[in-house]
């Protein structure tokens, strides 16, 4: 089944987002109402706050996405929403709204895996990306190394065995009293710090495809306990370097091993400037094509949901209306 214009909805975590995308590639509108300011006071995402804010923001955000796309409601041919992974209360808001709209407008409903949506974010900006492609998906909730062999066909090579990379950034930033979200703060402070000032461990760097970021977090805590006078920029830069080194090493090894045409970043941590810089360096050295999506496409948005939905609808048809939110959903394995 095919639908030209798809309305996508994303409410898996911080962001309430809606977008209209034509044929999986042409972004007609993409509206993100960030809840970051609301959460900054709490040092993290508070579930009750997140769910309630999604309820309040979703319909205005959807209305704006439809208006900005310059279409009428009846021109929407399918409605898609993220159904996992994420916070269960937050997911339910988007899924319920999308089902209701699909029934009222009598168009298909498509349930989208948030991780698959992240993979499709790259194709929105670069529709002709050649596969196989190695994608490093790094955010507050996820850290995965994925090989995309063809559309909707991918393999998860490895994932974190404990903390996600973005979670380590957030927790270290909070421990150092730097505020939330931790990623941008540490990125900014690192500019003035020495990345080699302190050598933090690069866990599991050489073995396997899985990641572990719990140890580096603990090392930062231990270092601060013993050396309370360490300059914060040096601490930030050294911590960031340890995380980025492991991410880049594994992504590079994976790209070599599978004979990838390109190496691609996704997820909120993909906005980290050191990660982007180092990824570009290794791609130049090894001759892979590097693809670094814009910040807007790295972070949670609904255009990527509508894009993934276009491919899913073509391949599998509409999703059943009895599908619910699945907070611990994984990528389908092929």
């Amino acid at each position: 089944m095919s639908a030209d214009r798809i309305l996508g909805i994303e409410t898996s975590c911080d962001e309430t987002a809606a977008a209209v995308v034509s044929r999986g590639t042409d972004v007609m509108s993409s509206v993100v109402s960030s809840q970051i300011e609301l959460h900054a006071r709490y040092g993290g995402v508070v579930p009750e706050v997140a769910s309630r804010a999604h309820v309040e923001l979703l319909m205005p955000v959807v209305a704006q996405a439809v208006v900005e796309a310059g279409v009428e409601d009846r021109e929407i041919e399918a409605v898609a929403a993220t159904y996992g992974p994420g916070l269960v209360g937050a997911l339910l808001v988007g899924v319920s709204a999308a089902k209701a709209m699909s029934m009222v407008w009598d168009v298909p409903f498509v349930a989208v895996n948030h991780l698959e949506a992240h993979l499709y974010a790259s194709f929105l900006e670069e529709p002709d990306l050649e596969m196989p492609l190695v994608i490093l998906l790094v955010s507050g909730g996820h850290t995965s190394l994925i090989v995309m062999e063809d559309h909707l066909r991918y393999r998860v090579l490895g994932s974190t065995v404990d903390d996600a990379a973005g979670e380590a950034f957030d927790k270290v930033a909070r421990h150092l009293g730097l505020g939330y979200p931790g990623g941008p703060v540490i990125d900014a402070l690192s500019v003035d710090g020495d990345p080699n000032a302190i050598h933090f461990p690069r866990a599991m760097a050489k073995d396997g495809w899985d990641f572990s970021f719990s140890g580096v977090k603990t090392s930062v805590v231990n270092h601060v306990r013993k050396n309370p006078d360490t300059a914060i920029p040096d601490l930030a830069a050294s911590f960031q370097e340890a995380v980025v080194d492991v991410l880049i090493d594994k992504a590079r090894r994976a790209a070599r091993e599978v004979g990838a045409k390109g190496l691609c970043l996704g997820g909120g941590v993909a906005a980290n400037s050191r990660l982007r810089e180092k990824l570009l360096d290794v791609c130049v050295e090894d001759g892979f094509r590097a693809f670094l999506p814009s910040r807007a496409m790295c972070t949670d948005n609904a255009a990527m949901v509508a894009a993934a939905a276009w491919w899913r609808l073509e391949a599998d048809g509409p999703s059943p209306l009895n599908i619910g939110a699945d907070p611990s959903l994984r990528l389908p394995v092929h």
């Binding site: 975590c13 992974p85 903390d163």
Partner: peptide, 29 residues
């Protein structure tokens, strides 16, 4: 693998007994 539940708040694992792994790090009220 048992991973940090900070993001999803609750993970559930099946073993000889179900193991629920919750995280109240982000819950302040």
């Amino acid at each position: 693998p048992v991973t940090s539940p900070t993001f999803t708040l609750a993970n559930r694992y099946r073993g000889s007994m179900t193991v629920n792994h919750l995280d109240a790090y982000r819950v302040e009220a």
